[in-house]
Design a protein around this nucleic acid. Sequence first.
DNA 1: TATGAATGAGGATTCATTCAT
DNA 2: CATGAATGAATCCTCATTCAT
Lengths: 207, 207, 207, 207
Amino acid sequence: MPLNSRKQREAELARTSFVEAGVQVFSKKGFHGATMDEIARLAGYSPGAIYRYFHSKDEVLMAVIERIGERFLEQVREEPPVRLDFVDRLRWFAIRHTQLADDHRDFFATFVVNNPAVEWDRTTTLGAKACQFFDDLVTGIAGLMALGIEEGVLRPGDPKRYARLFTSLMKGMAEGWPADQRTTPVAEWVEQIIDIFFHGVATPKEH
Amino acid sequence: MPLNSRKQREAELARTSFVEAGVQVFSKKGFHGATMDEIARLAGYSPGAIYRYFHSKDEVLMAVIERIGERFLEQVREEPPVRLDFVDRLRWFAIRHTQLADDHRDFFATFVVNNPAVEWDRTTTLGAKACQFFDDLVTGIAGLMALGIEEGVLRPGDPKRYARLFTSLMKGMAEGWPADQRTTPVAEWVEQIIDIFFHGVATPKEH
Amino acid sequence: MPLNSRKQREAELARTSFVEAGVQVFSKKGFHGATMDEIARLAGYSPGAIYRYFHSKDEVLMAVIERIGERFLEQVREEPPVRLDFVDRLRWFAIRHTQLADDHRDFFATFVVNNPAVEWDRTTTLGAKACQFFDDLVTGIAGLMALGIEEGVLRPGDPKRYARLFTSLMKGMAEGWPADQRTTPVAEWVEQIIDIFFHGVATPKEH
Amino acid sequence: MPLNSRKQREAELARTSFVEAGVQVFSKKGFHGATMDEIARLAGYSPGAIYRYFHSKDEVLMAVIERIGERFLEQVREEPPVRLDFVDRLRWFAIRHTQLADDHRDFFATFVVNNPAVEWDRTTTLGAKACQFFDDLVTGIAGLMALGIEEGVLRPGDPKRYARLFTSLMKGMAEGWPADQRTTPVAEWVEQIIDIFFHGVATPKEH
DNA sequence: TATGAATGAGGATTCATTCAT
DNA sequence: CATGAATGAATCCTCATTCAT
């Protein structure tokens, strides 16, 4: 059924364009500040159209979290093609994660870096979704950190804390060094993050 | 004019109570989620009363940023009573900063940790104010970091970047360790932040 | 033109299925509560299809009134196969009317029992149609009542009023005794209505 | 506190005017057809004002049912000043009930005569309220009918059915004889209803 | 002819803001 | 000055209606 599949493809396309618009508008204005009208217009539709694809504003944001979030989660779960020691493993992850964060800068700032539990009500379906995503992501990265602890490269400690610290560092760097002003290649940038994460900013002690 | 000045004092008092209420409500609900009604009620007034002191909701938030922000900025500018070397100076700052962040947890999360330029429109008066505050704060902390670089304790580098990294670390820790679940005293918590900031999380190399 | 007439027959069929669907949906949800979408789906079509047969929602409802109303009107006009005296004539009508009301319970409640003039705006085409139907029906039943007056079985009076009273009684009984809870056969039920209509509920006087 | 009580009075007045407007608009357009805007305008307010007094459209209708319904219920519960035999008792009730129905013609048609259970969803707060009112009313009138049965004036039977029949008769008469076209005084009109209720419309048998 | 995606007007509801008291 | 009722613009969402396919 090529007809059917074309329709499906078009519908998927429309849905996607709403989600993409949602990412931008939600990020720029926040959840309350975003209007369905703006999302629809940005997606190239009239305000009513959105409701053919989503039941509510909440659902749009949930789709945003789901779609973009899934890319982050996939990446966390993905194994490198060859076996790497922890530092290289982390470097491998950080480079790709950084690139993804660059592509979805607003989503990254809103959902990856901030703990949604601070600002979202977990008892709502939407809040639960946001928190769930964040938990999954931190848990995923924590799994990576656990390897480092096991290998003895990282000091013993809570891997989730390490995960959050690493994410925070990435954001701290990212905010001070936005993609559009960046002249250094990502690889070098990541090198700096990793360096700081491992060794801090202190001048190494001579002896 | 004792009468006039009493009036002035009373007016200032009223203004203050609105700002304090604003801090709480804006923080809990975000800018769009906060309502003038809730702010007024929390301040012990009726909704109309606000407009004798502020022209608009934006102005209330600006006053909030100004007032709370000022406490953060003061702290950054303040010198310790005795001369301290950089590490102690940073520790002294961090303890007081942490406590302030604890007292204004939501403000901290909204205005101190995130670069408002990412989420606020700089062309509005309000957005400009938020960005200005953030810049001032980072600049202030960067001044501190510059001391560390001068002293040779910190590696040479952009002091602003160090400032942002330090702030990010504090947030990364804070989110994983909220005040209401914290059993460790602040001093110890700060010690961990400083340790990581200086030396990272790597296992120290033997030799 | 057999082709043309087949087409016509098919078109008539489609129209009919929309009307039948309209009957159900309008009845269950009321005019404002009913949606074109639901009517179309129930008829087995997509929402756009309706507009090939009707110009508007109003027109659908008008067709509903027309079609179902016609069944009621036909029944009123129909003569029994054999000549009956008034009481049997009324009984004969009541049994069949009750059955039809049972089959179109919601239509009956909406258009037959209530005077639409109370709730519908006569100046609209739709309102006028509803009122027209009601008037026709009452006039029809009044014709029957006139027979009773002529025969001397009913006291002299306004036959229209008798018609309305009879209809009201049927509804009063029906609501207290819905079809799905009814154990008595319709014939017996009708007997009660007729009894009350003729003799009221008073205990017959002895003498 | 005269000030306070004046405010209270004014608020009560505003609420009342919304309820009165609600009665009219709901009756004319039905629940779905009525708009908050129309209710507000009819009450002399702007659309937002209504929400100071009611949380939702449902609540407005509930207030309508409550306020007007209470008058009907009061009347049902009220005892005549002197002891009357059943027929006079019923006449006394019917005259006053008729007058009330005249004053609230739309409410009467919508909530008193029709069994709301037929058209309203009992599982909603609003539907439950409407059904509750109807049940209370029928139960109340049934209490009166039970007296008639006890006295032997009415044939033995379900008093609730008698209640519904009486109400239906009143409506059947009312619809055919609207107040604005009526030339006969209410007392005479009631006399006719009672006559038909007790003795039906048949010509009395000679013997 | 039928489909169903898209439109856009309209309705419930919220809330910043005003203003008579 | 403070109140709080009232306003009306803005927002989410629904649904009759249109139209390209």
